[in-house]
Amino acid sequence: MGFDWAVIHDNLPFLMRGLWNSVQLAAITVVLSFPLGCIVALGRISRRRWLRYPATMLVHALRSNPLILIVFWFFFLVPILTGRPVGDFASVLAAFVVFFSAYFAEIVRSGIQSVRRGQLEAALSTGLTYAQAMRFIVLPQALRSMTPSLATECVIVFQGTTIAYVVGMREFLHTTFLVTERTMRPVELYLFAALVYFVVCLAGSIFARRLEGKAGIPR
């Protein structure tokens, strides 16, 4: 069979609008779920049981479910809870933010725990409060050790946006699908989509690896 790569050129604006939606979904997800993840992580390591238990259960529950199922849950539940229909984007975004906050929480938690306990104790021994010790001593060091994992997680979020396809959100994979329906050129279009995802994600992965080389603090 012959290839017809013009189909990509002809539909490029439509496809790029899909890609832009994917990027937006990923970016907003990261911006919202990272702080949420920090809060959950602090709950996870708290000494207070009424904070630690719910945070731990939330993280385990979310991490043992597939993202696609969480998306279905939200797609079904959000209209019931709010009592009126919300757009695809809102319900998908809510699902993504909640889902990925569990993953960010675990990254933040292991970052915090990678800081030696003596650092916290030294800070406390000089009269800093627990909150100050976290803010000025533990978190800055934790952040440095977890930046590579955070970058990797951003790539995973971007890959995850393809799942919004299942509820009909017009992200990149969905727009690609729509064009194949119309043009009957799946080979060119899906290979193109794969290439675009590959380039973006590879760039992200390489960036994350670079960070890994720099993450060390001289001791």
Partner: peptide, 23 residues
């Protein structure tokens, strides 16, 4: 490793399903 890790699984499934037989 780079190829299979950096393309979303759903896209890979679509390629195996829609593209691979045609090739």
């Amino acid at each position: 490793v780079e190829l299979f890790r950096n393309v979303p699984l759903l896209v890979q499934l679509f390629i195996w399903f829609f593209v691979f037989p045609l090739l």
